[in-house]
Computed example of a mutant assay.
Amino acid sequence: MNSNLGFDGAFSSLGVTGLFSIIITISSILLAWYLLQELKLDHWFKHPRSPRARVLIAVLSVIVGHLFARFILDYWSWTNVLKLI
């Protein structure tokens, strides 16, 4: 019965890491969306509040937010590996 305790701890650790990654990624996408609202879309679109313009902002938010989250998560992973040296 005690041998399962190691697996439970490992799965719990993976769960916490996954939850942390999800929170960081969603937060980064929301931050990117908030910051991209400041773009002047008048230069690219005739109607800057149209559905096309909003979809563009949403897609750009996901792309930029994901890249930023990946950087944060990679940096966090690298610092954890450096602890082992």
Rank of each mutant, 00 (worst) to 15 (best):
V62T: 10
F11W: 09
N4W: 01
H66D: 07
F11L: 14
G65Q: 02
H43T: 15
L5E: 03
D8V: 09
R54K: 12
S61V: 04
T25G: 00
H66S: 11
L14T: 04
F45P: 06
A32F: 01
S27K: 07
G18N: 03
F45I: 07
M1D: 00
R49D: 15
I57R: 13
I63T: 07
S27C: 11
L5I: 08
G18Y: 00
L82E: 14
Q37V: 13
S61D: 06
M1E: 03
T79M: 14
L60W: 06
F68V: 08
A58Q: 09
E38V: 13
L30F: 07
I29L: 04
F7L: 15
I23W: 01
F68I: 04
S12W: 11
A53T: 10
W33C: 04
R49E: 13
I23S: 02
L14C: 11
I72H: 02
W76A: 10
W33H: 11
K83Y: 15
A53C: 07
N2I: 15
I22D: 04
W44T: 09
S61C: 06
L41T: 04
N80I: 08
F45C: 07
D42S: 14
L19G: 10
I26N: 01
W78H: 09
S3H: 04
V55D: 13
P48F: 10
L67P: 04
W78P: 05
V62W: 05
L73I: 08
W78Q: 11
S21V: 00
L31P: 00
S3C: 05
F68P: 02
F45L: 05
A10F: 11
L82Y: 15
W44Y: 14
R52T: 09
A32H: 02
L82S: 15
I57A: 12
G65L: 03
L14W: 06
V59H: 04
L31R: 01
A58W: 15
V16F: 06
W44L: 12
D42H: 08
A58V: 08
S21P: 00
S50A: 13
K46R: 10
G6S: 14
W78N: 10
L19I: 05
S28C: 05
D42F: 12
V62S: 03
H47N: 15
L14E: 08
F45W: 14
G65H: 02
L14S: 09
M1A: 02
F71C: 02
I24C: 01
I22A: 06
Q37N: 10
S61P: 03
A32E: 02
L35N: 05
F71V: 03
V16N: 09
W78I: 11
W44S: 12
R54P: 11
R52L: 11
V55C: 12
Q37M: 11
L31K: 00
G18H: 00
P51K: 12
W78G: 02
F20D: 01
